[in-house]
Amino acid sequence: MHIHAYEKLWLALSIVLILALIGTVTYGAVGPGVAMVADSQSTIDAGGIDEDERFSEPRVEQVGENEYEAYVVAYQFGFEPTPIVVPANSTVTLQVTSRDVIHGFEVAGTSANTMVVPGEVSEITVETDEPTEYGIVCNEYCGAGHHVMEGKLHVVSQSEFENRGGDSE
């Protein structure tokens, strides 16, 4: 079978393109360590959040050397705690759950974004850089007040974080 040289060329280019797409995604996973939101947490009782040791009192907690965990509850229509205060240059694991309906948790302008499902705990780990302030929006329609549902994520310096008593209000 005769295949024109040009056709061979663009067949080869399309294979190169496919390999490059797979290659860049592989690089992202291996190099910068980009991960997906996994189903790593066991389910909880969405109606019994008040008795849950993590979510009865939404807060930020130090769990290791420069490692923090934030327990966040989404509800109609807001997030607790507000603001979520975390220290700069640290590793922060956000555990987010809902006590009513499905919500979204998107730190606006960043890659931190997950669904929040009642009874499930969405866990995402991010690394903070310099002190700054982010907004958090709900990106799953959750009811009449969906458009006003927002939160705040404040990345503060280590010293300011300690002055706050290592906890967010």
């Binding site: 980009v34 730190v107 890659s111």
Partner: peptide, 11 residues
Amino acid sequence: EFLGRDLVIVG
């Protein structure tokens, strides 16, 4: 746009 943003999910 993707890797250049803040708060890349790493776990």
